[in-house]
Design a binder for these strands. Structure first.
Lengths: 213, 213
DNA sequence: GCATCTTTTTATACGCGTATAGAAAGTAGC
DNA sequence: GCTACTTTCTATACGCGTATAAAAAGATGC
């Protein structure tokens, strides 16, 4: 008997998700608060908690929806290393504009249901390259850690820059003792410029090469 | 004339830092709130803001103190790759038990003043290995991204595990379609076990090898 | 001694995530 | 029609980081 008992719901998880998508799209991820979502669906913040476990849960659902829409391009290279690089690059390209996703997923190695194409492709590339299953999973997780670290560093740096703190790094780098820190002292003010470079691809290739060796 | 005008301070930055250290040491980083620190030094939360810019600033100062006490062991290897691996491993060992540091420093490539020994040693190893200054800085930043990503993933996973969500990953991995995701479907429940492994060293060596190639 | 200026401290307030308690609105058994 | 039971929603509250405004407490110039 599938009859439902209890007070009939005024809102649904889908409605919550739709509202959340609207808010993120139009006002950015910072605007996504439980109260804001509640207002959007015409209820109170606490009512949401009967449909999602907590805000993290909501973000995970949001990401899963989002991931479903991101295509994994067909591989171009035919060597395993090239395919691993391609898949990881696609994964990073999908995530980089939405660093909040990384903050949500850090713990879970990008394990959102509808994002699994990315790990699948990377693990497959490594196994094709001769690694056994365990080593391929290790390789994937290593690449994930690198990717997550790079994206969230980049996001934090951008946030910082829009704030104020151009000065903090300069502060750290002024008046270094060349006797104690010769390399850094020699770099001096160049750090600021060098630290702005996008090194993802370089690191990724080094990683893939080293892992397939 | 170094005479001070204005209302004499009741508290000092040093007192705030000392209190913060006490709190983190005895109650953990989650207990470190501005109000808690204020109570510890016998004042109100807002009074702290005349001595530190914001909570992030406080955390950075805290980290700087902490970094001063962590030794960088003398190198054992004499090849550059070995020295880079040693320095990075020491850096990670210093940070891993205190993942909150990584959250604070993500944007700044571990640029706390008194932690500069670590980048110095890593950049030096790479330059000794034949890279020019720019490539060595790139190499350091790549290693930092990897290290930061690994530490914060590990920390988030641990937090997750102490919570509840043993189930989330299982959820994602049940009922995969072997036609669509053959590699992952074949792994099945083994993921949980494989994802627990510590792959830092493996990735680090791959990275260093790839970067010095 | 008193007004002025500067620095620091306090008071109050906002929106955040979410814990807790209880009210509301249905179905089911009698 | 009444009571029990279940589910959902609402009200209230807590501690968080911190913005803003006002008060306090000293030095300085007259």
């Amino acid at each position: 008997m599938p009859t439902r008992t209890g007070r009939p719901p005024k809102i649904s998880r889908d409605a919550i998700l739709a509202a959340a998508h609207r808010i993120v799209d139009t006002e950015g991820p910072d605007a996504l608060t439980m109260r804001r979502v509640a207002r959007e669906v015409g209820t109170t913040a606490m009512a949401l908690y009967h449909h999602v476990r907590d805000k993290d849960d909501l973000l995970r659902l949001l990401l899963d929806d989002y991931a479903a829409g991101v295509p994994l391009p067909d591989p171009v290279s035919d060597d395993p290393a090239g395919r691993a690089v391609e898949a990881a690059t696609a994964m990073r390209a999908a995530l980089a504009p939405r660093p909040w996703i990384v903050d949500v997923l850090r713990a879970d190695d990008l394990l959102a249901r509808r994002a699994l194409r990315f790990p699948e492709a990377i693990i497959d590339a490594f196994m094709t390259g001769g690694l056994d299953a365990e080593d391929a999973v290790d390789a994937y997780r290593i690449i994930w850690h690198y990717t997550a670290g790079e994206i969230s560093a980049r996001a934090a740096a951008t946030r910082r820059r829009t704030d104020d703190r151009l000065t903090y790094r300069e502060q750290v780098f002024t008046g270094l003792d060349p006797a104690e820190l010769p390399r850094l002292a020699a770099l001096g003010e160049r750090w600021e410029e060098l630290a702005g470079r996008d090194t993802y691809d370089k690191g990724l290739r080094a990683l893939v090469h080293g892992l397939l060796r």
